[in-house]
Simulated scan of single mutants.
Amino acid sequence: MKASHRKKARELALQALYSYLMSGNDMKQVELHIATTNDMAKVDVAYFQDILQGIAKDPDAIDKAYKAYLGRLPEELDPIEKSIMRLATFELVHRIDTPFKVVINEAIELAKTFGAEESHKFINGALDKAVKTLRKDERA
């Protein structure tokens, strides 16, 4: 699968996670809506589904994994920042096939595209701290 297909999977996953947070709908409904309203031909669909299903299974565990690196509570994050942190943290913890530098870079790019003006700096700082614990073997 091409890297650009994973990039698109992350973009759509971010949109789904945001929708999930804002609507309170079931993740399966949100996933279905995103999949049927977008061209999925150039999307790593399995990656997209893995992210969404993995986060939906236990969002509190994902939030707990990054909470210590924020400098504020997860509840204080805006929905885009929270969605990006969940996405990146899920990848850092559960998708070790993706190098941590790629995870962080992609999260920063998502924050630049979809987040508030300076949110990419916040995301970068939090993930730089988190990766030291979540991927300590890879950083060694």
Rank of each mutant, 00 (worst) to 15 (best):
A13P: 03
A41M: 15
D128H: 05
D60C: 10
F122I: 12
A9T: 02
A65S: 07
E118D: 15
N38Q: 12
A61V: 15
H94M: 11
D50F: 07
M22R: 12
G54P: 06
A16S: 10
N124I: 05
E11T: 09
K28S: 15
E118C: 10
V93N: 07
P79N: 14
K121N: 12
P79F: 08
I55C: 04
A61L: 08
V131T: 00
M1P: 14
T133V: 02
R139L: 01
R6V: 11
A140M: 02
K8C: 03
S4N: 07
E11C: 06
T133Y: 00
K67C: 07
K64P: 08
A111I: 08
A3P: 06
L17R: 03
D128N: 09
E117W: 13
T113F: 14
I62K: 02
E75F: 08
Y69L: 01
Q15A: 07
Q49V: 13
A9Y: 00
K129T: 02
K101G: 08
A9R: 01
G115D: 09
L110Y: 13
E11A: 14
N38W: 05
Y47L: 13
V30Q: 04
L17I: 15
S4D: 05
K82E: 13
K82N: 07
N38M: 01
F122N: 03
K112I: 10
G54N: 06
L134E: 00
V45R: 12
T89N: 04
E117G: 03
D44M: 10
H33I: 08
I96N: 11
Y47N: 13
K8D: 04
L21S: 09
Y69P: 01
R95F: 12
R135A: 00
A9I: 02
S83I: 08
P59G: 02
I55E: 06
E118M: 06
F48N: 05
T98W: 02
I104W: 03
D97A: 13
K57F: 10
D26M: 12
Q15N: 15
N38I: 05
M22K: 13
D50K: 13
R72H: 13
E31S: 14
A68S: 11
P74T: 06
R10C: 06
R86W: 10
V43D: 04
A3L: 14
N124V: 05
I62S: 01
G24N: 12
L14A: 09
I80A: 03
K67I: 06
L110I: 09
R86H: 15
D58Q: 09
V102K: 12
M40A: 03
F122V: 13
K132D: 00
I84M: 13
N38D: 06
T133I: 01
D128L: 04
P59E: 05
A140Q: 01
E31I: 15
R72A: 09
D39I: 07
D78V: 05
Q15Y: 04
A88V: 11
E138M: 01
A107S: 06
K67D: 06
K136L: 03
Y66K: 03
L21F: 09
A130E: 00
N38Y: 05
V45C: 10
M27T: 14
D78A: 06
D44L: 10
S83C: 11
I62C: 05
G125A: 12
L92Q: 00
R10G: 04
D58V: 02
F48G: 03
L14K: 05
A3N: 15
T37W: 01
K64A: 14
D26E: 13
D97M: 08
F48E: 04
